[in-house]
Design a protein around this nucleic acid. Structure first.
Lengths: 189, 189
DNA sequence: CTCCAATCTTGTCATCGGAAAGATTGGAGG
DNA sequence: CCTCCAATCTTTCCGATGACAAGATTGGAG
C-alpha cells in the first residue's frame, strides 16, 4: 500500500491526477486557457513530469478526449431504449461533463487516430446511427434522420454551453432539450 | 495616396492586414494555433506593432468576432425572405467563413461586451427569432421553434466543420443541410 | 513650416512547451 | 534478503511567446 505524502518521489497516480487537473482547468478557462506547467504545479510535481505520461500537450488532450468518448458512449448506451432520450442524454453529457465535450469535438487539439479513442467514438456513433434508423419514417431516410437528430442535439448543447441561447440559459437545459426534441420528432413516444 | 513599399515606417493599413493574417492563420490551424508575433511577421512589422491596434490577443479576436457577426448578420438578412433558407444561409456562412465562425461561438476567446460586436450579434439573432416565429405552428411555440431551428443549423455546421459527420463530408454540405432542414420542417415551402 | 499625435520599433521580463540528462525508487527475480 | 533494472520523477536548458515600457518616425492639421 502506498502512502500519499508530499515528499514521495513517486506520485503514485500522476497520470490520473494530471487528467483531473486538466478537467478542472478546462472547466475554469477552456481547453486552451492553461499550461502544462500549471497542471504539474497543481499536482505537486515538477513541470516535466507530465511529459513522461502524455508526451506533450496534444497527448494529454488525447487522453482527455478518449476518456470523454468512453463516458459519452456509456451515457448514450444507457439511454438507447427510448430513442428520443438518446438526444436528451447527448445534451446531458455535454452539460454535465463540459470539459470532456469541449475537447472531444475539437479534433485539432488531439490525435484523432488514437486507437482507444477511435473505439469509444465508434461505440457512441453506433448508438446515434441505430437511434436514427429507428426514428426514420422510411428506410430511405435513415441517414437524413440520423444527421438531423445528431445535429439538433449537438447544436443545442453547443449553443447552451457557449451561452448563445437567450434568457433560456437560466432554466433547466435538459428539460428544454427534451421539449425541443419532442417538438421536432413527435410527441407520441 | 500612400505608396505601399517595404521600407515605409507606417504600414498604411496594419489593422486590416493583421486581421486578414489572423483569418488565414485560423483557417490553417484554428483559433489558438498561432501567435501574435507570427501575424506581425506575416504583415512585415515588428512584434509589438499589433498591440497598438488591438491591445492584446483577446482584442484582436474581438475584432475578428465583431467582423464575423456583421458578415453573419448580412448573410442571414439576405436569406430572410425564405424562412427555410435562413438555416441554409447559417450553414453556408459557417463553412464559407470558417475562421469567423470558429471564433464567434467561443466567447472565452474575446470580449463579449464589445459594443459593435453586440450590435451585429443582436442583428443576427433578430433574423433567427423572426424566422422561428414565422415557422412556428402556434404562437405559443415560437420560442421552441426558434431554438429548434437554430440548434439544427448550428449543430449541422459544427459537426461538419469538426469532421464528425460520416462519409457525408465529401458531398455538398449546403445541399445536405437543405435536405435536413426540409426533412424536419416540412417540404411544402 | 511646425509640431503633435498616431503609428511603429527596440528592448526587456516572466512564462511556456519541449528536449536532454540525471536522480530516485518500487518491485521482479535470484 | 539482496541486487538491479525499468519506470517514474527532477533539474537544467533552449527558443518562442504575450505583455509592457520607452523611444523613434512620420503624416497631416493648423
Amino acid at each position: 500500500m502506498r502512502q500519499i505524502n508530499q515528499t514521495a518521489y513517486h506520485h503514485g497516480n500522476l497520470r490520473r491526477a494530471i487528467i483531473d487537473a486538466a478537467l478542472e482547468a478546462i472547466t475554469e478557462s477552456g481547453p486552451a486557457g492553461w499550461s502544462l506547467r500549471e497542471l504539474a504545479r497543481r499536482a505537486g510535481v515538477s513541470h516535466a513530469a507530465p511529459a513522461h505520461h502524455f508526451g506533450d500537450k496534444a497527448g494529454l488532450l488525447t487522453a482527455v478526449a478518449a476518456e470523454g468518448f468512453e463516458v459519452f458512449a456509456d451515457t448514450l448506451e444507457r439511454a438507447a431504449d427510448d430513442v428520443l432520450e438518446v438526444g436528451v442524454a447527448y445534451v446531458r453529457f455535454a452539460i454535465g461533463h463540459r470539459p470532456y465535450f469541449e475537447v472531444m469535438f475539437r479534433p485539432e487539439l488531439y490525435r484523432v487516430d488514437d486507437p482507444s479513442l477511435e473505439t469509444a467514438r465508434e461505440r457512441a456513433a453506433h448508438v446515434l446511427v441505430t437511434s436514427g434508423g429507428r426514428l426514420s419514417p422510411s428506410p430511405g431516410q435513415d441517414r437524413l434522420t440520423t444527421i438531423a437528430g445528431w445535429s439538433l442535439a449537438h447544436g443545442f448543447a453547443s449553443l447552451w454551453l457557449s451561452g448563445a441561447l437567450p434568457e433560456t440559459a437560466h432554466s433547466d437545459p435538459e428539460a428544454l432539450a427534451r421539449s425541443v426534441i419532442r417538438f421536432l420528432f413527435g410527441t407520441t413516444h
